[in-house]
Design a protein around this nucleic acid. Structure first.
Lengths: 259, 259
DNA sequence: GTGTGTGAATGTCTTCACAGCT
DNA sequence: AGCTGTGAAGACATTCACACAC
């Protein structure tokens, strides 16, 4: 959701819906787990449960990739892992730089699920001269003066911004000027980027606020089941599945699952 | 988005669309910045630009809250800040616990944007006895043996899980059993929760994979503008705004913060 | 004149339900 | 018989465009 949207305003042909793309990593994770347990095939029903979505959605999602299943049987786990990995571009190596090595930047640098999926932390960059040379997660921090050179030398196209809000836009501008075309932004700011550059943002405080909104409703309902309370709701809890969560914004990334 | 959905299956009356709720924090942030600069009023056009959305969407979003603007003039900044805060439930205090004080947990504990919005870190919990008593961000870490007591003593209803994947579900179960009804999950796992409990997830690796997907397409197009390449695309990049990113997810989903 | 508020139109995502392949 | 793949229906979200209030 962040700002508008740059990628295909409505692509057809090999156009995989954005909502589907956002779920592919989820399926991939579930499939990887099955693969490690040497499970050979899986049905849409089983895989959907593992990924926390419903089976119709999963089948529809896979249908955009092609017909990789076998009717009456299910999906071949290894084959699907490969197809989804390829579709997501994970069969290649993605050098990534992290800018802003504070608490969060360090946490990201140490994050394991990083390397496990084709992403390689090529460099850590920080504006504090005192940090320069210090190793974090085994990688020496470099000073931001060299940002452009680092990007270019490593052929980096994906940048992660974990700086304070005020530094985010300038850093973003430099990253883009140096050739970065995809940015994952952890700073609580809206970034302006030229067309063709993708930005995804992750904002803790926003997630908490969304939770608070729903939490408030729950409290209001309890206290006033008649729908009169503070945040009078009047829902109808219509008969419905028994799922849970969701995940927000636009692409609305999915988020959880039922018991 | 995620799985089904627990909150109003399609509530009307005071039913604010989920997509709108997800944007309210964005508007609030932009408004807070204006407020600090003592700007008295703002038009939908200006505010939309600051929040990174288009003005029609913003007006539609606000229309779900009520008619807080003045035709021909715009919106009163202070008044809107108050209304949105109230709608989001930020006028009250939300004690939060963070479970799992590793790199990420520590980063979250240190996050400023936290307290700034009605959220108060009531306790830090970790399973490592060696951590017990150590202060992180000025708050002493407590051992997870006391999790239930901590939740109850502090009246916590929102929990943040920043543990390794394997520990997430057990921790989640204990949190829920102790009374937590909203969970922000940073562990790369699908959590099972009973109906009535909200879960939002933030997964760094998923965000990167989505970026990689788009990045791959860009590369494919450059190399094969005819739409024949590896991941043959054939989009049409139809004329479009000059905004940027999106977030998914589901929407989009999304979540953290800066150093 | 200016900018909000909103019905109507359009577009996207999800769910249903079943035909068709194994 | 079983489970995928998918048209069609429905729900939801965004955008348009303009009447109306200031």
């Amino acid at each position: 959701m962040a700002t508008g949207r740059t990628h295909r305003p409505a692509t057809r042909s090999r156009g995989i819906p954005e909502a589907t793309v956002a779920r592919l990593p989820l399926y991939l994770r579930a499939l990887t787990a099955l693969s490690e347990r040497s499970v050979p095939t899986v049905s849409s029903e089983e895989l959907a449960a593992a990924a926390g979505v419903n089976s119709a959605k999963l089948r529809k999602d896979f249908s955009y990739l092609g017909s990789y299943g076998t009717r009456g049987v299910g999906y071949d786990v290894e084959y699907l892992v490969y197809q989804i990995s390829r579709e997501l571009g994970l069969t290649q190596d993605w050098p990534v730089v992290i800018v802003g090595i504070g608490n969060l930047g360090a946490a990201l640098a140490n994050y394991g699920g990083f390397a496990s999926r084709g992403f390689r932390v090529a460099a850590l960059i920080d504006a504090d001269p005192a940090m320069a040379g210090k190793p974090v997660a085994g990688i020496p921090v470099q000073h931001s003066d060299d940002l452009e050179k680092i990007i270019q030398d490593n052929g980096v196209s994906i940048g992660v911004i974990a700086t304070p809000a005020g530094a985010a836009q300038p850093v973003c501008d430099r990253l883009v000027a140096a050739g970065v075309t995809s940015i994952l932004n952890f700073a609580p700011t809206v970034l302006s980027v030229p067309e063709g550059v993708d930005v995804r943002k992750v904002d803790l405080s926003i997630e908490l606020q969304i939770l608070a909104f729903h939490e408030q409703r729950k409290a209001g309902e309890e206290a006033h089941p008649d729908g009169t309370g503070p945040a009078a709701v009047t829902r109808e809890e219509s008969g419905d599945s028994a799922e849970s969560a969701d995940q927000g914004p636009d692409g609305d990334v999915p988020a959880v699952m039922p018991a």
